[in-house]
């Protein structure tokens, strides 16, 4: 594994290796609960909580976890924190909890979290793991808010339930439907691909000019 600096650990997950937009992990929540920014935020917060706690716990206990049962142990750890998140949300944000429904519990099977434990926390110290988890969590949040913002804006004409386009706006209902989730993510990926392509072209042109 190549050496990284702590700041790289933090930043990497935010954009360069964004779990949703680049690595295509955790698609289920990214599509299912992003029909409004509020839901996206609640989901992000819960996931953020779970990934940070899990990473800290896993990296601090890594010496005690035998290699053979590590995956089971990780799942156990994650499931515990998901349960905690579930209960906390239910107690203190019951409306969001009802909106998100089963998808809170489904954080358990979010490949992104397990993937970070296996790929990073199991091999690094607590500090680094926390940074990594925070970075990944922020990346996840950014992706979800992008999705949620786009979908809520077009789907209801509002952002965070604050009307943006005025009362006469005709909402694109499809955006808050499941099909809209797929289309939105597809569209975002296409747009990102386009930007990437443009960048490469520019770099190529510059290189050509230089030579």
């Amino acid at each position: 594994m190549r050496k990284t600096t702590p700041s790289q650990d933090l930043i990497r997950g935010i954009w360069e290796e964004n779990p949703v937009l680049i690595q295509m992990l955790g698609l289920c929540p990214a599509l299912a609960v992003t029909n409004s920014v509020k839901n996206a935020l609640a989901m992000s917060a819960a996931t953020f909580f779970v990934i940070c706690c899990s990473s800290v716990l896993v990296s601090s206990c890594k010496r005690f976890i035998p290699k053979e049962v590590r995956i089971s142990a990780y799942i156990l750890v994650i499931a515990t924190f998901v349960t905690l998140a579930d209960m906390l949300l239910q107690a203190y944000a019951p409306v969001q909890h009802k909106e998100l429904g089963a998808f809170i519990a489904l954080i358990v099977v979010n490949c992104m979290i397990l993937g970070r434990q296996e790929a990073f926390s199991a091999k690094n110290n607590v500090y680094r793991s926390l940074l990594d988890a925070i970075g990944t969590g922020i990346g996840f949040t950014i992706a979800l808010i992008m999705m949620g913002g786009f979908r809520e804006l077009l789907g209801t004409g509002a952002f965070l339930e604050y009307s943006v386009f005025g009362p006469n706006f005709e909402p694109w209902v499809i955006m808050v439907l499941p099909a809209g989730g797929f289309l939105t993510l597809g569209f975002i990926l296409l747009a990102m691909g386009y930007i990437e392509q443009r960048k490469k072209m520019k770099a190529l042109m510059a290189a050509e000019k230089a030579s």
């Binding site: 005709e170 694109w172 209902v173 499809i174 099909a179 809209g180």
Partner: peptide
């Protein structure tokens, strides 16, 4: 289908 899903009323 897009229009049907996006603007079901219209």
């Amino acid at each position: 289908a897009f229009l049907q899903a996006a603007f079901p009323v219209a």
